[in-house]
Design a protein around this nucleic acid. Structure first.
Lengths: 346, 346
DNA sequence: ACGCCTTGATTATACGCTTAATCATATCAA
DNA sequence: TTGATATGATTAAGCGTATAATCAAGGCGT
């Protein structure tokens, strides 16, 4: 049996340089060829360097590259929950699929910031995470709860990042990739009116974030004569028998729910009074369930192009990294309307 | 809108040092108080440093810390398939869950080598000679097809890695974490004899890798008087009506299949002749399906502690990284026997 | 008074890489 | 022949931190 090299003397740039008979600067130039390079390398020298790299098995040290301000072809992924969701039907999972595909296509490796979740409570980018991020060229932020202040703080750092989901903190021009909820919900309303509905109710969460606001905007955008649109915000738990009675008495024939939870809560009340959906009242879910839910399919709902969003996030992040001075990229992708059976004509 | 600072000035150690009126070494000592410290700090100075850190909002730069400490705190994950399986019920997924948990616990970030899958054909650790892995402190190898030669090659570089699943190439003492198939299968045989079976058949794949050999070993290990054990290796497709007839005529009352595919193929033949499992013959699957399979649950089968294996892989990798001179760590974890309904008494 | 130990802090260097500032030639127009 | 320009490579200065090697000064036993 061969004895293993006891010292893992990492092969460094200067080892390669020595073997190739050049200076470290040349090696650096070869490994990280930038467009506006200040260092030029001849054909011959490059060949020798590559040969040396090959035989020595050299790989640049990312950490050192980071410190020195170079490029690494590594994209960070920060999620506020565990990165690999234990529930595989998890809402966020498709984003990751898209991110991986994007990274693959663009020749980037993915760095998952798992270490930043050491502390208790919700994950935080700061103070331990932000520094960690420095190892990557930029990062994609994914999850439900990016704290606005943290986002601003990260922004001020100058570190390139893209959030999935629209995030617009004060005084920060952040890159994001988002689903076009405005149009999607407007389309739902349009569809409902085509089906003969005249009194529609929008039920949303009390916590109004950007995407929630967007949905409401889309809802109200379709306002026209002969149409009665009402908006109500309350916790899903507050949807009780009384609430439903009132809703029906008001003459509403369809309810658009901002969250899947609200849709489920509403249906429960309908069933409780021995009614059925959509006979008693139609329901359209304006969101997908956060975790696996057995019967998603039967719901008439909006679908978000999650994989595409993940892929685009990578793409835009790379764009931002390569020309940081440009304005932030805010991308919006169209949603789909999944038919289902909880919406009928009126 | 505020214009983005093109130049970012982070608060550094020396800023703090200046404000506190001490040298950077003192600040360093305060932030990272290690047991065997070579630098001592007085009560008074420490207080001043802490105050300065507070008012300046200083947080040590992890990248620089890593560089100085010669550590990256990054673990590479290399899979031979896509890292985020599109089918979330994928066999490999639980390993990733475990790996993430392990990394989290040990303060490591995870680097996924997505870029190496750019080329056509099966993924390779050594894409174009340049070894991307070098960017991490070590790596975990996951997947079905680690080429032995590549493994040996990687081993020779001295780069620390752990494979999930037993891998023993010639002349290479590799770290691995594996399921204890030997004991598990032996236990299955024992259980079968308890249920009165006397003629058992083991059906395996033609491609005999380590884990397959282990299963066979476990099977034959339980040999005892009055027991007839036979081993047969053939592709799942070759299990046809004739084969089954022969198997039954031989008096076998239970078949242990090395792969899930074999189990399914076998059952199909049983059903084809209007028989049922386990009435016609009992089947025990010695493996889980590679991808989502609707009715895994009803099968009597071996279950592999996948999450635990992932977690342990991280743990062992770290151990190997911090003391490379030690012998390779080969860890074996017990499997479980899941009851199911495809095994009955005889 | 002297050496010796302890405590508290500084200096200087290393970590591995990027890059601006230079420098040395070769090429070439006039 | 002479600058001027292009090409190819080197030097050296960081990036922010950790730490070994030093050093200064005070206390203390003898």
């Amino acid at each position: 049996m061969t004895t293993r090299q006891s010292r893992i003397k990492r092969v460094t740039q200067s080892d390669v340089a020595a073997m190739a008979g050049v200076s470290t600067a040349v090696v650096s130039a070869v490994t990280s060829s930038k467009p506006g390079k200040t260092i030029r390398v001849g054909k011959d020298a490059e060949k020798r360097v590559r040969a040396a790299m090959e035989t020595l098995g050299y790989a640049p040290n990312v950490v050192a590259q980071s410190l020195a301000g170079g490029k690494r072809n590594i994209i960070g992924v920060f999620t506020y929950e565990a990165i690999f969701p234990s529930d595989s039907e998890n809402f966020f999972y498709p984003f990751l699929l898209g991110i991986e595909r994007g990274a693959m296509t663009l020749g980037q490796d993915l760095l998952l910031f798992t270490s930043s979740s050491l502390e208790q409570g919700p994950r935080s980018i700061f103070p331990n995470g932000a520094n960690r991020m420095g190892v990557a060229d930029g990062a994609i932020l994914l999850g439900e709860e990016p704290d606005k202040r943290e986002l601003k703080q990260l922004y001020d750092t100058g570190f390139p990042f893209v959030t999935i989901g629209r995030r617009d903190p004060e005084d920060a021009d952040v890159n994001w990739v988002a689903a076009d909820y405005v149009t999607a919900v407007a389309d739902v309303v349009k569809r409902c009116t085509e089906l003969g509905h005249r009194k529609l109710k929008f039920v949303g969460a009390t916590n109004v974030r950007e995407q929630n606001a967007d949905r409401e905007t889309g809802f109200l955008q379709q306002q026209e004569s002969g149409l009665e649109l009402s908006v109500e915000r309350l916790a899903a738990e507050e949807i009780d028998a009384n609430w439903l009675t009132r809703c029906l008495n008001d003459g509403n024939t369809v309810v658009l729910t901002e969250t899947f939870k609200h849709a489920v809560a509403l249906e429960r009340q309908v069933l409780a009074r021995h009614g059925t959906v959509p006979e008693t009242i139609s329901i359209v879910a304006l969101a997908a369930p956060l975790s696996r839910s057995a019967d998603v399919e039967r719901w008439t709902r909006i679908s978000v192009p999650r994989e595409e969003m993940g892929e685009l996030a990578v793409r835009n992040l790379i764009a931002q990294i390569s020309s940081p001075d440009n304005a932030a990229i805010k991308a919006t992708l169209p949603c789909g309307l999944v038919p289902g059976s909880t919406l009928k004509n009126n």
